[in-house]
Design a protein around this nucleic acid. Structure first.
Lengths: 311, 311
DNA sequence: ATCGGAGCATCACTATATCTGATCACTACG
DNA sequence: CGTAGTGATCAGATATAGTGATGCTCCGAT
């Protein structure tokens, strides 16, 4: 009566005998000899501690005992499930099924992902895409390392060697000022000294900004912090202060703010797509990366064109 | 890539490694050596044709590949199902679970079963009872032989040696006549010669009745047949004819009919409870038989007392 | 009654698979 | 650069599942 001795082939034999009525025909179906099936059923009965069949002897069929009926029902579920697993795995190998979980953050979700997902699903309609959005890049990277995510959009730089990052586009830092300022003007970095600033709480690129400001001898003075881009911009609009933001997070169509270049410029943040090195991925996941590269190239062209127009 | 080589222990190893993160700890949990688990996972990967884990090497945990994630989900279902089977079988062995399917026919369903089931469920509240009612005793016996039924109420006599029958009670045949006749009177069998009769279609005891009538030199003349006892009695009430019925099928409280004894009497039908010989039964099924014997003994006492009163 | 056949159990034997224990190779980290 | 922790691999002892032959039991037919 050792349940760990139960084997899949025992369950298959159980079902075959239950359906065929005799050990011999079951053996034929399974491609074994009658002797083998007899031993398999015997082993199963020893393992579970109950007889599975009444064997009337003579030409009358073996019939299930109550315990046997119970086991057959479970065996059917188990065997069906294994068959299903085989089917699904075949589909996975054929590329006609699968799931990709992608980490993302607000800017990417708004500016990049819709186009990428649209194109991807057009190519791979049977592959499921799931998104995980987080403010906290370390959290996302931990999940990527743990295998919970297959890919993750990241701000390159704050990423260690466990990951390989494909660069997608540069996102320049700009100064966002109330509309009283001149649109597109070049603004000396020193203007920020002592000025009231608006920023994020602890996003990855906020650290980049502060680091650069301090390198320029400016100790930033935040009068408001929010992780919502709209809220940040609304406060600028209200005249509460200035904000250094990545261009992609700025709503450039807002007439109530002026977008200005910094002088000297802060090195732009690089948006990338990270994969855990050495981890097996679906081919479709790599295709997803390619599509993201394409989409971001288009986006970069558009940004540069817009900047030229504004200058 | 031979799915039939997949073994339960492989699935257990898969799950253990997925949860523990390393082969060694999984081995510890399973009571094997690391080497064994490594070989088990390797065998599984060979069987399904896909790597289940990425092994980064060094102290970093093994993580599931997409195929591995798929397999783990199925493995969990399979393993849980087996655990459930073990639980249910233990309950079956302990007598605290199970299902008994009982064949029955109209008289028994009405006069005997309610009391038997009531007492049985009081004793075995966790055992499920399922009833199959049929007019056709051959059909019921075939199902009993096939294992579909565990027990079946039968009219003894028309039962072959594949079954053992426990006698429950004798059910005497009586003549049911319109109320104009005298209640309880002894009626010569010859009175039925040429009389319009009401009977069943092809029930087991109808054959007994006809056989006895013919043995007495009477060719029965049926003017109405129904398998519904109420309908038969209603037609007698309406004066359409006489009916020879087993006493238990008669509603003796009906003032519009007279129940009379036949002279010479037709040998009573014996109601019994049949089991397929040699078939494993739940202990509870045998207990069900005992209770049926008790209930029918009470019923017999009651019938005899009532007959004495009527005489 | 006896006999033949169908059906399951059992036996002896072989091939194979599984486990253990030792060792190797690799990686991260101090 | 060594150490610790990891999985892979190897060789060998052991156990197991299979085959084919045989035995036993029961049913039904002659």
């Amino acid at each position: 009566m050792v349940w760990s001795d139960v084997e899949i082939r025992h369950l298959a034999a159980l079902r075959a005998v239950a359906e065929e009525g005799t050990f011999g025909r079951a053996a034929e179906r399974l491609g074994f000899t009658q002797s083998a099936v007899s031993q398999q059923i015997s082993a199963l009965e020893r393992a579970v501690g109950e007889r599975m069949f009444d064997r009337p002897g003579g030409p009358r069929p073996a019939t299930l005992t109550p315990a046997g009926r119970l086991m057959v029902e479970h065996a059917a579920v188990v065997l069906d499930r294994l068959a299903q697993a085989a089917d699904e795995l075949a589909a996975l190998q054929a590329g006609s099924a699968g799931r990709i979980v992608v980490g993302t953050f607000q800017t990417v979700s708004v500016r990049v992902l819709p186009a990428v997902i649209g194109r991807f699903l057009a190519e791979h309609p049977h592959i499921e895409i799931r998104l995980v959005e987080s403010d906290d890049q370390d959290d996302v990277l931990a999940r990527l390392a743990g295998g919970e995510l297959d890919l993750s959009f990241v701000v390159a730089g704050a990423v260690d060697e466990r990951f390989e990052v494909v660069g997608l586009c540069e996102d320049p830092f700009v100064l966002v000022a109330p509309a009283a300022s001149t649109q597109g003007e070049r603004r000396p970095l020193d203007d920020l000294a002592g000025a009231p600033l608006i920023g994020w709480h602890a996003a990855a690129c906020q650290a980049l900004i502060d680091q650069e400001l301090r390198a320029g001898g400016i100790e930033p003075d935040y009068v408001f912090r929010s992780n919502d881009n709209g809220a940040v911009q609304a406060m600028v609009r209200a005249g509460m202060g200035l904000s250094v933001m990545p261009l992609l997070t700025v709503d450039v169509d807002d007439p109530a703010v002026a977008v200005q270049r910094l002088d000297p410029p802060i090195p732009p943040r690089v948006i990338g797509l990270a994969r855990a090195v050495g981890r097996t991925r679906l081919p479709a996941a790599d295709r997803f990366v390619e599509l993201a590269v394409d989409v971001c190239a288009d986006l970069g062209d558009e940004l540069r064109a817009r900047a030229r127009r504004r200058r």
